[in-house]
């Protein structure tokens, strides 16, 4: 019962804050709404026995990524809503219509799939989502995740280098102007 109430509350927060994020023309407000969405999702992850992921969600997404967003907004001075949205352009109408069809399709697929509730009860989860399990999955030679893990570390390195290259001022540009 408690879990049900929690779900509905969290779901409501998620949806409302994401709608605020999309609807707001102020990027700072959008960013804060997104933080709220992510935090409520993190709580939801705990109820789904993904404690480690929940922690990472808070640290990486709600923390680092969103701070980065806010930082860029402040850096570029985009805080003020300087961009009036053009209401009801063809693009907007089509986008909402298509998205509606998309949603209906997805929901219908989910409903008709008609999966039974939790085939595996919490007792038999054997510590699903604990740090131990995550560590075992990532580094065990019997699991397929070791190589992707290493590849991801290289990806992150490349991303860091790319970000630095992009953010650096071009020497030719500064000299030319």
């Amino acid at each position: 019962m408690f879990a049900q109430i929690l779900f509905w509350v969290l779901a409501a927060i998620c949806i409302i804050s994401s709608l605020v994020m999309v609807g707001s023309s102020n990027p700072v407000r959008s960013a804060l709404a997104l933080v709220l969405t992510m935090l409520s999702l993190a709580v939801m992850y705990i109820t789904l026995s993904a404690q480690f992921i929940a922690a990472v969600q808070v640290v990486v997404y709600a923390g680092a990524v969103m701070v980065l967003f806010l930082f860029v907004i402040m850096l570029l001075n985009l805080g003020a809503p300087a961009l009036p949205e053009q209401p009801r352009s063809m693009q907007t109408v089509l986008a909402i219509a298509l998205a509606g069809v998309f949603l209906v399709g997805l929901v219908a697929a989910g409903v008709f799939q008609n999966l039974p509730a939790a085939p595996i009860s919490a007792k038999h989860l054997h510590g699903l989502g604990t740090v131990q399990q995550i560590g075992y999955s990532l580094y065990s030679p019997h699991q397929p995740w070791l190589f992707p893990f290493e590849a991801t570390s290289i990806l992150l390195l490349i991303a860091v280098v790319g970000a630095i290259v992009l953010a650096r001022k071009q020497p030719a540009e500064t000299e030319g102007s």
């Binding site: 693009q91 298509l98 069809v101 399709g105 997805l106 697929a109 008709f112």
Partner: peptide, 24 residues
């Protein structure tokens, strides 16, 4: 770019509808 994104969404919608047909 947003127009192109719209076309991508249209493609996704098609995929989802196809999935729906299979589920049904």
């Amino acid at each position: 770019a947003r127009n192109y994104a719209l076309v991508m969404l249209a493609g996704m919608v098609t995929l989802v509808l196809g999935l729906l047909v299979r589920v049904m």
